Amino acid sequence: MGEFLGELATLFADGAFRRWHVARTRRRLAAGRPVRVPCSARSDRAGWQRAYVNGTLDITPGAATAAFGERGGDRLQLPTGGSFHEPEPDTWYDQDWAATCYLPPDGGEPVHLQVDSRYLPLVHVTLADPKSQQKV
Rank of each mutant, 00 (worst) to 15 (best):
M1K: 12
G2K: 14
E3N: 05
A9C: 04
D14W: 11
D14M: 10
G15W: 05
H21W: 09
H21E: 14
R27F: 02
A30W: 02
A30E: 13
A31N: 09
R33F: 02
P34D: 04
V35S: 01
C39S: 09
A41C: 08
D44F: 06
R45D: 07
A46Q: 14
A46W: 11
A46F: 11
W48Q: 10
V53Y: 04
D58W: 06
T60L: 13
P61N: 10
A63T: 04
A63E: 10
T65R: 12
T65M: 08
A67F: 10
A67E: 14
E70N: 11
R71V: 08
G73A: 15
D74H: 14
L76N: 06
L76R: 08
L78C: 07
T80C: 15
H85T: 02
P89A: 11
P89S: 09
W92E: 12
A99I: 00
T100K: 02
L103R: 05
P105N: 07
P105T: 04
P105K: 06
G108A: 11
P110K: 03
V115A: 10
R118H: 11
L120Q: 15
L120V: 01
P121N: 12
V123H: 07
H124K: 12
V125L: 13
T126Y: 01
L127I: 05
L127W: 04
A128I: 04
P130C: 06
P130W: 01
K131W: 08
Q133K: 05
Q134H: 13
